[in-house]
Design a protein around this nucleic acid. Structure first.
Lengths: 69, 69
DNA sequence: AATTTTTGTAAGAAAGATATTACAGAATTT
DNA sequence: AAATTCTGTAATATCTTTCTTACAAAAATT
């Protein structure tokens, strides 16, 4: 599995969590402290998130960071 | 568990793998394509590695990226 | 003990991630 | 259908990570 698939996988997981929790990109962005545009790109696998940001998201949704991989 | 602990945890894991495989920081750096200084900082929990670099290391050591978390 | 190898550390440069702004299209709501 | 909310996208700016260079300390080897 290459880095592109990892990007898509992480993006999909974030989007799923966001939808499950009935949040808009903007709401999630505000909670996590990042821009909506960046979240949009991450969800579509265009940008790669840092470990620190991924950690914040995992914390917010109360899941283990492992579950993104 | 905060981001500082995650840094230390990742650094320790990388160092352990490197020692187990009898590599110097310089050798690992060359294989992975990153600087020795940066690996030194990562191992000591001073710098936080990106997901892409972490992925390269996991691939080199043939382990799952989950195992860093 | 001297030599060589390995590692820590710092300052500045380069690269990459993320923010900001702005606008358009899609989806939803009224 | 109009209005509102939500999302995609691009260009530029800002911030953080990573590299480069250089030197010193520590550890291993001879």
């Amino acid at each position: 599995m290459g880095i592109r698939k990892i990007k898509n996988q992480i993006g999909k997981k974030i989007k799923d969590l966001r939808i499950e929790n009935d949040l808009s990109q903007e709401q999630l962005a505000e909670y996590i402290g990042m821009s909506r545009e960046h979240i949009s790109c991450i969800e579509r696998g265009k940008n790669l998130i840092t470990i620190e940001s991924l950690y914040k998201i995992s914390k917010y949704f109360k899941i283990n960071i492992k579950d993104f991989f």
